[in-house]
Simulated scan of single mutants.
Amino acid sequence: MLIQTKHFGEIDLDESKIITFDQGIMGFEEYKQYTILYDIEDSEKPTISWLQSIEEPGLALPVINPFIVKPDYNPVVEDELLKPLGGINEDNLVLLLTVTVPTDITKMSVNLKAPFIINGDTRKGCQAIVENQDYEIKYKVYDIIQKSKGREKVKC
């Protein structure tokens, strides 16, 4: 299926790559279907990807694997929130964090409090507020990402 995207123009998307958020995501509850996009011209998977709405081309959120920026990330989420996603285990669990990239890129942060939780098998997802009190909404990550990329420039 052809979809219009914010950063990649029109792309042909295999329907098996669509992730459904039955409740939508925070601030965009009316949009339920998304996919994850990244620049495939790079030889390695990029640090930052895009959670792209299928229904709204202008809605694409930068996201990152939390273990890149916080290796001990262990969100505590109510089991009730995860039930609609189907049986989640460590083989099908996909966790992503929203990245905020301000004009001053050195102030880049991620939201540890509201991860996207996706069951890769069922392609169902939700955004949850975690119970961990010590997780920040604006966790600064620029230096961490620079170190993980071997001092290369961050690609956004």
Rank of each mutant, 00 (worst) to 15 (best):
E44V: 14
S43T: 14
N89V: 06
E78M: 11
K45P: 06
S53M: 03
G58M: 14
T98V: 14
P57H: 10
L61Q: 00
D104T: 10
I54P: 01
V94C: 11
N89I: 08
K107L: 13
N92Q: 05
N65I: 04
P75D: 01
E44D: 15
K45H: 12
I105L: 10
N89K: 00
N74S: 14
I48L: 03
K107R: 14
V99S: 03
K70N: 06
D42G: 13
S49M: 15
N92V: 09
L93G: 10
V76D: 12
D42F: 15
D72S: 12
G87K: 13
P62E: 07
L95W: 03
E44H: 11
V76K: 15
G86M: 08
G86K: 06
E55C: 00
D104L: 09
S49G: 01
V77Y: 04
V101L: 12
L59S: 06
I40G: 10
E78I: 06
P71N: 11
K83M: 12
L96Y: 08
P102R: 06
E90V: 10
P75M: 02
L93N: 09
P66K: 04
E41N: 15
Q52D: 08
G87E: 15
I68T: 12
I40P: 10
Y73Q: 00
T98A: 11
L59N: 01
L82G: 09
L51G: 05
V69I: 11
V69G: 04
L85T: 03
V99P: 06
K107T: 07
I54M: 03
N65H: 07
E90P: 05
G86Y: 05
N74R: 10
I105A: 12
L85F: 01
K70W: 02
P57K: 14
E55L: 07
V77C: 00
L97D: 03
T98P: 00
Q52F: 01
K45R: 13
N65V: 01
V63T: 09
K83W: 02
E78H: 13
V76I: 14
T106L: 07
T106F: 05
F67A: 00
L97V: 07
A60I: 00
T98N: 14
P62D: 02
G58E: 15
I40H: 13
E80C: 02
D72L: 04
L97G: 08
E55S: 09
G86I: 06
K83D: 10
D72N: 14
I48G: 03
S53A: 11
L82C: 09
L93D: 09
P71G: 08
V69C: 04
K45C: 08
V77P: 04
V63S: 01
L95G: 08
